[in-house]
Computed example of a mutant assay.
Amino acid sequence: MSKQDMVNILIDLKLLTSATGKSREVLDKHGVEQETYIYKKYNIDSLQFALSNDYYSYYVTEYESIYAKVNDSLSRMKEILSLQQERELKAKKLQDSLAKIAKDSLAIDKKTIDKDSLKVLKADEKNKGKLIPPVSEK
């Protein structure tokens, strides 16, 4: 098995083993078994994986470089996920703020319409369709 295949397999194994809570429930609900999933995805069997794992663990520097790539990839995935979650949180906060502003402005509008405002509105209704009188003679 190539180094890159080993990297990809180890990344998937780390992701699967780290699944908790709701993620674990989803995997269990769909009957996903970690090893079986990996074997099918990469079209390998347990013997191929075991032999490759033994080979790379014998050549420690090779195995270290594989794990360095795995760690780098997982770190990058974590950064991307954090950025996505941060963007989603900001978007939700903005949406909530806009909804609150709209709600508050409607409440303020209702409170600020007093008797004088109603008089102006009634006057506007009387003058509906009429020309607005000029402000000056010019």
Rank of each mutant, 00 (worst) to 15 (best):
L51T: 06
L51M: 08
S52N: 13
S52E: 09
S52Q: 09
S52T: 09
S52K: 06
N53D: 10
N53K: 12
N53R: 08
N53W: 09
D54F: 11
D54Q: 09
Y55I: 02
Y55F: 12
Y55V: 01
Y55P: 00
Y55T: 02
Y56H: 01
Y56T: 00
Y56L: 01
Y56R: 01
S57E: 06
S57D: 00
S57Y: 04
S57Q: 11
Y58P: 00
Y58M: 05
Y58A: 04
Y58L: 06
Y59M: 04
Y59F: 15
Y59P: 00
Y59S: 02
V60S: 03
V60L: 06
T61N: 05
T61R: 06
T61G: 00
E62S: 04
E62F: 12
E62W: 10
E62Q: 13
Y63L: 08
E64N: 14
E64A: 11
E64L: 14
E64G: 06
S65C: 05
S65N: 10
S65D: 10
S65F: 08
I66R: 03
I66N: 00
I66S: 01
I66T: 03
I66A: 01
I66W: 05
Y67S: 03
A68V: 07
A68I: 08
A68T: 11
A68H: 12
A68N: 10
A68L: 13
K69F: 09
K69N: 12
K69T: 14
K69Q: 15
V70S: 01
V70A: 01
V70C: 01
N71V: 13
N71I: 14
D72M: 09
D72R: 10
D72G: 06
S73R: 14
S73T: 14
S73N: 09
S73C: 07
S73Q: 11
S73H: 10
L74I: 02
L74Q: 01
S75C: 02
S75R: 08
R76D: 04
R76W: 06
R76S: 04
M77T: 02
M77L: 11
M77S: 05
K78Y: 04
K78E: 05
E79V: 03
I80F: 01
I80H: 02
I80W: 00
I80Y: 02
I80G: 00
I80E: 05
L81I: 03
L81V: 02
L81W: 03
L81S: 05
S82G: 04
S82T: 07
S82C: 04
S82Q: 10
S82I: 08
L83V: 08
L83A: 06
Q84M: 09
Q84D: 08
Q84T: 05
Q84C: 05
Q84K: 12
Q84A: 06
Q85T: 07
Q85M: 13
Q85S: 10
Q85G: 04
E86H: 13
E86S: 15
E86T: 13
R87V: 10
R87T: 09
R87M: 13
R87S: 10
R87I: 12
E88H: 13
E88D: 14
L89F: 15
L89N: 12
L89M: 12
K90H: 14
K90L: 15
K90G: 03
K90D: 09
K90Y: 15
K90Q: 15
K90R: 15
K90S: 12
K92N: 11
K92Y: 11
K92A: 15
K92P: 00
K92F: 12
K93F: 14
K93M: 15
